[in-house]
Simulated scan of single mutants.
Amino acid sequence: MSGLINLDEVAGSRSTHKFARLSASKARVVLDLIRDEDLDRAREELQFCDRGAATVVSKVLESAVSNAENNENLSADELYVAECWADEGPTLKRWRPRARGRATRINKRTCHITVVVAQLSEEELEMRAAQMAASGRRSADADRAARVAASKENEEETTSDEAEMVEEELESASTESDEEAALEQNEHPEQDLEHDDESNDSQSSDEAEPEASDENTEADQQDEKEA
């Protein structure tokens, strides 16, 4: 299959999976399903294909798409499978014991799978845009942008809700503390009166001490004069 393709003329972003543990003939059956198909159609074909090679080919296709997006700044909506092929790799030889001391060989074949994706022409892109506008669908980039905007709005709403909840909790805690203090005052009014009496007694004793000290100083002065 690779002998019919001039690799120098194939343009686009490519990805190659070397030494895949399946035969090239089995891989080519799956590759024929996605050749010259746009990206969405190729993904659908591989998703619902019941062959084992579809999983490997799907990984190679996604790798080629990521190379196109990161290295050439292309949009996934504008890509299609330009070319794909499978080359035969080395064969691993194993042996199976058989009757009468004989042995037969087991050939575990490998292959190299290559997928090339390229950008659609301007005419095809215009036709696709018209079809999507008529059907009311959006491109993958538009869907991604809408999801990002929606997630940002949800994050802002959650942060505002959390701030409101924190404020409500603080207010409820302050009201509860005030209520507890009021209840304690109502439950122990006698203790409060005793504390007030003690404070008044201490103040009166403090006021009496300077008066006594003044009387002592006057008595000392009189004694000095008599002497």
Rank of each mutant, 00 (worst) to 15 (best):
E180G: 10
L39W: 00
E62Y: 01
E155A: 15
D178K: 13
V56R: 13
I106Q: 08
E184K: 15
L79H: 03
D40R: 01
N107Q: 08
A24F: 09
A140I: 13
V116N: 03
E167C: 10
E153I: 10
Y80F: 11
I113S: 00
R144V: 08
W85H: 10
S58G: 09
R43T: 01
D87M: 06
H195M: 14
K93E: 07
E45F: 03
R98M: 15
A133Y: 00
A68T: 01
A53T: 06
E187I: 14
V10R: 10
E83L: 06
L31G: 08
H188A: 14
W85Q: 13
E168F: 04
N154A: 15
V115T: 00
D77E: 05
R144P: 06
R128H: 10
E69Q: 11
G12K: 05
E207R: 05
N186Q: 09
K152H: 15
S75Q: 04
A99N: 09
Q47F: 03
E187Q: 13
A149T: 14
I106L: 07
E226H: 05
S213L: 07
S139A: 02
F19Q: 03
A24D: 10
D87Q: 13
K18C: 08
I113D: 01
K225E: 06
Q119Y: 02
E124Y: 00
E78L: 06
N71Q: 15
D38Q: 05
E187M: 15
T159E: 13
V57L: 08
V30W: 05
L193W: 10
E190M: 04
